[in-house]
């Protein structure tokens, strides 16, 4: 029972990653592996800034900013240099590993001795766990409203059209190189922000904390879509956030049931593989049903 609030909180902090992955994977139709580098990039940036004495909000803005740069690099690799998007993301991810080490100066920074966004603004009498929930909620509401508004603008519509049909949007005068770069920039800013929040709630930033984040993001997106629908963009955003919370709950439950933590990534990968293969299973099932009738 006492796991419910931390589970929801973690789901909220990670849902920014999920929204970021949604923007590339669903809106732009690109599987962007940059996130594996930009998530720890956000964590590294926030850790470096906090230990240098910055206050948490500017430190998180800096984290989102470095995430943007990561997205721009991948964007330039895949538009201007015509490197396939998947490979472009891998290149940036690998490059960021070194850069993250440079930013942190070592592989791991503890944040237990510095003020984080969760401790500095703590309301007296409120536990750290509740603070994480509140700040998580604020971040998610702010981000999702901003995303919703942005994707309703002319630029946002152009980005959505780019993912859906690049021929169409080019024929209407939009430079798809720019829209792709913008989408990647926005996505990775959110992912880095997620990394910054998660690092502060964990109490440390680690250079290895990006491993598997793309799969976690995909799991959240797919779980959300299946359980909560995809009727409209608003619906999708809410689904993705809820998907991230459900994913955390699933993880909490299987851990409670005795699954060794080392198997978590294997478990998540299998979950995502099954979910991605779902349309195929569904088609086979329908065929069999049709054959029976």
């Amino acid at each position: 029972m006492d796991l419910i609030i931390p589970t929801i909180s973690q789901g909220l902090l990670w849902s920014l990653l999920a929204i970021g992955v949604y923007i590339t994977f669903r809106v732009l139709d690109i599987a962007d592996l940059t996130v594996e580098g930009s998530f720890p990039l956000g964590a590294a940036t926030v850790a470096a800034c906090l230990t240098a004495g910055w206050s948490p909000v500017p430190a998180m803005i800096a984290a989102a900013f470095t995430g943007m740069l990561g997205g721009i690099i991948t964007g330039i690799l895949c538009t201007k240099l015509k490197i396939p998007a998947l490979l472009a993301g891998i290149l940036t991810m690998i490059a960021l590993y070194s850069i993250n080490l440079h930013i942190m100066g070592k592989a791991n920074i503890s944040l237990l001795q510095v003020d984080t966004v969760f401790s500095l603004y703590a309301i007296s009498g409120m536990s750290q766990a509740n603070m994480i929930l509140i700040i998580g909620l604020i971040s998610v509401v702010f981000t999702s409203v901003a995303c919703y508004l942005f994707f309703g603008t002319e630029i946002g519509a152009a980005i959505r059209a780019t993912g859906c049909n690049p021929h169409m949007i080019r024929a209407n005068g939009v430079n798809t190189d720019i829209t792709i770069i913008l989408g990647l920039l926005l996505s990775n800013a959110l992912v880095a922000l997620s990394g910054a929040l998660v690092a502060q709630s964990n109490g440390f930033a680690d250079v290895g904390m990006g491993v598997g984040t793309i799969v976690i993001g995909l799991a959240s997106v797919i779980i959300g879509e299946v359980l909560f629908g995809t009727r409209s963009f608003k619906n999708c955003l809410i689904s993705v956030i809820l998907g991230s919370i459900v994913y955390r709950a699933v993880i909490a439950i299987v851990l409670q049931m005795g699954m060794p933590p080392n198997d978590l990534k294997l478990f998540t990968a299998i979950l995502v593989a099954l979910a991605l293969a779902m349309p195929l299973f569904q088609a086979k099932l329908n065929k069999r049903k049709a054959a029976k009738n």
Binding site: G152, T153, E154, A157, N165
Partner: peptide, 30 residues
């Protein structure tokens, strides 16, 4: 399939076409 964006509404598609050749801005799209 090539001339329209399938995942977007008729209205949204037309709004994009209605500003063909102009650089998109942060104004509301449709």
């Amino acid at each position: 399939m090539m001339g329209t964006a399938a995942n977007m509404q008729i209205e949204e598609n037309m709004a994009i076409a209605a500003r063909r050749g102009k650089t998109p801005t942060l104004r509301w799209s449709a």
